[in-house]
Design a protein around this nucleic acid. Structure first.
Length: 853
RNA sequence: GCCCGAGUGGUGGAAUGGUAGACACGACGGAUUCAAAAUCCGUUGCCCUUGCGGGCGUGCCGGUUCAAGUCCGGCCUCGGGUACCA
């Protein structure tokens, strides 16, 4: 008997699918459509196990849906713009374009052996001019619709590399590449007006029933709705034009405890003062120093500068609040000005201690509350407190009620109004980078900022590396330095003008690619018919790391595309169902050098916990695969050793899909063994005499229908690991079966069908050997016969007071009364009852008997 | 700090309120073999017991229920997200 040799069969079946044009998606109104999409990869050059897991899950869904009669769209593309390509060009020379496209070729050829049911005819990369040209068209439409605008914004600026840094690129306040002290700089940048949609993006989360609750919560927190009071404080001693300052607070009930105010260094008042007083200007510069990232913020000391200006509390005219400029007040949130209530806010408390400001209690704990001494008193959510300086409402109430009373009181008194605010800020899309989609506008000396004409799109990046026009070896944006690229006539007046050299954030590229897949070659961003037919994505699958930005931006884009007529209204929530899969992890193998420093070793260099030279290896528990820890398992090695089906089977088998799965050599081995067993089983059944009569056909048939039912449920509910467990069990039953050849042949063919979404190559092979019609990928999914899902006789456990004491075999359709009789006649039951008569007997049909003694 | 999640054998994990530990790994025993690999069969939560059998057991404490891993209340631990957000 020959052995299971994946290398001999897998390529053959991939060619068979190609030859039959199996996965090319075409509109067909007669069939229900199903659009399954995995988050497209960045072309780093190598696929990793995470990709294998992600795409295998999508493939299981896609293949399952094909077999249930759906017209499936399952495309793949490349999220191809971004910094790594530019960095590679800087580090090793060459052009980002060449680097990217050659990586795409490599990755495509690594992906194809996985046997994914992808419609490769729709493939595109976001760096294709055909794609980003359409993105520029979208930008222009958004601009016209008022969804994009320009404003000044503070960015992290690396003075050496002369570039803007993302927050993650700022390490200890220094640029990650140059090591230079990062500055905050104000630049004019483009923004998407996502904040206008904050309310809707939040409210619509409710309708996303098939999204993980976790992701919805994260988005809701990110959008960050708050309710509060916006009002004005009159100033004393402020320059002209600043007779009052606008404030926003979510805790208006603490207004009577206000003892100081603080404004942002970027507040108009601060700027006005800085213009006149050099010490204030110096302080404001100090505030702007350092990066805007979380880490830097955390460490920064809270400092303030007393401006000498005071505010008058509208409800307490004798209390003058000194106005500070403070480094912890953000211009971007609220109104850029706050009042401090040190008694009930720890940060305000510390600030007050530092600058010797008054602390005025507004409320105390309801029972034996004492005034604030060593730290601010911040009640818990819903805790009732006793107001000693109430603004409005009863003496004892919760903070929530107090806020309502305070807002109502203030509105009645003509002091401000209750407002809703969102934390969500507009999305800045300008990047001072080369390898991105050029922003299609022109700066004209007379006309100002002018949109490019659509007929001039795409505005292509200059690729002319050969003549040294593009130089990546020196810092800064190469587009800025290009001798001719910027020059263009003004689209409005025709006079010589300059192109914008900023490019778009790569998140823009991935915010609409799902829509482009519905008509990847269209001359417009989308086309009506295809978008209406294919949208929405029925199942989207990807990593949790994109829970906020990518998914929120996509939701914004779908709405913006609807407003500009590029998507139907029904598609403004682009992803009907979302699944976030876990990572593939692996142990880390380490030894130590003479000085005790760790040395990491590749998994393939370690056998039984030892290196080839016998050195014992320390094993560190599973962690995300990373190059630096050398715990990366290369999918290509696994495929060449065991075949793609084994890799696919393994990544689905051991853990629930949403959780991390640990790659283990023994697990991969076990997956291979199982597939070999199924293959041999099929060979054995093929070799049987077709007239062989069996003894237990009915039992095998029942087991088969249970397997159909359980595996179907498993796939439908993303319980791939559970589905695989059932497949193991059914395989064991079939292996031991003494049924007729006919029954066994039906069973192995059904097993192949149930396994085929996971291990398609092997299953095609079995199908062909058993004489199945056509390709298994097109065979209709087997249907479970409900009548066969319940055995004729069942085992029922009997509990006495909830403890299992016996079990009985009864006919499945026996009445409750008869079951009770049999149960009470059981020897073990009689023994346990010891002569007492039961108070009550509960019979759960088909399940259990509980005797209450 | 705030917001989510998760805690089940040696390990990954399974379980519409109804036999806890399916399935897999690992371990142990056996068959086959000159030997090994491969394959196959069996045992495997913990404790007591020769056995029959019994007791305990899903992070901890309490509750609801005939019945709780599952529901409720209160903790503990771990993981993730997030924040000078006024």
């Amino acid at each position: 008997m020959t052995r299971y040799t994946p290398s001999k069969i897998e390529e053959h079946w991939r060619q068979a699918w190609d030859a039959a044009d199996t996965f090319t998606a075409r509109r067909d109104e007669r069939k229900p459509k199903y659009y399954v999409l995995e988050m497209f990869p960045y072309p780093s050059g190598r696929i990793h196990m995470g990709h294998v897991r992600n795409y295998t899950m999508g493939d299981v869904i896609a293949r399952y849906k094909i077999s249930t009669g759906h017209n499936v769209l399952h495309p793949m593309g490349w999220d191809a713009f971004g910094m790594p390509a530019e960095n590679a060009a800087m580090a090793i020379g060459g052009h980002p374009k060449d680097w990217t496209y050659s990586n795409i070729d490599d990755m495509r050829s690594q992906m194809k052996p996985l046997g994914l049911s992808i419609d490769w005819s729709r493939e595109f990369a976001t760096c294709d001019p055909e794609y980003y040209g359409q993105q520029q068209a979208l930008f222009l439409d958004f601009l016209e619709a008022g969804l994009v605008y320009r404003k000044n914004a503070v960015v992290n600026w690396d003075p050496v590399d002369r570039t803007v840094l993302a927050n993650e690129q700022v390490i200890d306040g220094k640029g990650w590449r140059s090591g230079a002290e990062v500055e905050r700089r104000e630049l004019t940048q483009w923004f998407f007006k996502i904040s206008d949609m904050a309310g809707e993006l939040l409210a619509a989360l409710d309708g996303l029933d098939d999204w993980p609750a976790k992701v919805k919560t994260m988005q809701a927190n990110w959008i960050g709705k708050s309710r509060g009071l916006q009002f004005q404080f009159a100033t004393e001693g402020a320059p002209e034009g600043f007779g009052s300052i606008e404030m926003y607070t979510t805790r208006p009930d603490t207004l009577m405890g206000a003892t100081f105010a603080a404004i942002s260094a970027d507040h108009p008042l601060a700027k006005a003062l800085a213009a006149e007083q050099s010490d204030i200007a110096a302080f404001c510069d100090e505030c702007r120093k350092g990066a805007t990232n979380e880490e830097a913020m955390e460490k920064a000391e809270k400092i303030g500068f007393d401006t000498g200006i005071t505010l008058v509390n509208p409800f307490q005219h004798d209390r003058k609040l000194p106005v500070f400029i403070a480094n912890f007040v953000l211009m971007e949130y609220g109104t850029g000005a706050i009042y401090g209530c040190p008694a009930h806010d720890q940060r305000d408390f510390e600030f007050s201690k530092k600058y010797n400001l008054d602390i005025v209690d507004v409320f105390v704990a309801e029972k034996d509350g004492r005034p604030v001494e060593t730290e601010a008193y911040v009640p818990e959510k819903g805790e009732t407190v006793r107001y000693i300086r109430p603004l409005a409402g009863p003496e004892v109430m919760t903070g929530f009620d107090a806020i309502d009373h305070a807002i109502a009181h203030c509105e009645a008194a003509g002091v401000g109004a209750g407002v809703e605010k969102y934390r969500l800020r507009d999305w800045g899309l300008s990047r001072q980078r080369y390898w991105g989609c050029p922003i299609p506008v022109v700066h004209c000396a007379t006309c100002g900022v002018v949109p490019e004409k659509k007929e001039n799109l795409p505005i292509e990046l200059p690729y002319d590396n050969g003549n040294e026009a593009i130089d990546f070896s020196i810092p800064g944006n190469p587009l800025d330095r290009h001798p001719t690229w910027r020059d263009t006539p003004c689209p409005a007046c025709g006079a010589p003008a300059k192109r914008e050299t900023d490019t778009m954030d790569t998140f823009v590229d991935s915010s609409w690619y799902y829509a482009r897949f519905t008509a990847p070659r269209a001359e417009t961003p989308t086309n009506q018919g295809d978008a209406a037919y294919w949208m929405n994505v029925d199942q989207y699958i990807g990593g949790i790391e994109h829970a906020i930005l990518h998914l929120l931006y996509s939701r914004f884009f779908a709405r913006a595309m609807e407003i500009t007529g590029h998507l139907p209204k029904s598609a403004n929530e682009p992803f009907n169902a979302l699944f976030t899969q876990g990572m593939v992890t692996h142990e880390i193998y380490q030894t130590r050098d003479d000085k005790g420093r760790p040395i990491y070793h590749l998994p393939e260099d370690v056998t039984d916990g030892k290196l080839a030279d016998g050195t014992e290896v320390e094993i560190i528990p599973s962690a995300k695969m990373s190059k630096s820890k050398k715990n990366v398992v290369d999918p290509l090695n696994i495929i060449s050793k065991y075949g793609a089906d084994t890799a696919r089977w393994f990544v689905l088998s051991d853990s629930p899909p949403e959780r991390d799965v640990e790659w283990t050599a023994s697990g991969a081995e076990a997956a291979f063994k199982h597939l070999s067993r199924v293959w041999s089983l099929s060979a054995r059944i093929s070799a049987m005499d077709p007239s062989t009569k069996g003894t237990d056909d009915a039992a095998l048939t029942r087991a088969m229908h249970k397997a159909i039912h359980d595996v179907t449920m498993g796939i439908e509910s993303f319980g791939f690991n559970a589905a695989i467990a059932k497949l193991y069990s059914f395989t064991a039953v079939l292996q031991k079966s003494k049924a007729s050849h006919a029954a066994q042949r039906t069973a192995i063919m059904t097993l192949a069908q149930l396994m085929s979404p996971m291990t398609p190559h092997l299953c095609e092979d079995i199908w062909a050997h058993q004489g199945g019609e056509g390709l298994i990928v097109n065979a209709p999914w087997p249907q479970a016969d409900e009548a066969l899902l319940v055995d004729e006789t069942i085992t029922m456990p009997i509990q006495i007071n909830g403890k299992r004491r016996a079990e009985i075999q009864v006919a499945a359709d026996l009445t409750k009364e008869d079951v009770e009789k049999i149960a009470l006649a059981n020897e073990a039951v009689i023994r346990s009852l010891a002569g007492t008569s039961p108070k009550k007997v509960i019979v759960v049909p088909g399940r259990i008997v509980n005797v209450v003694a």
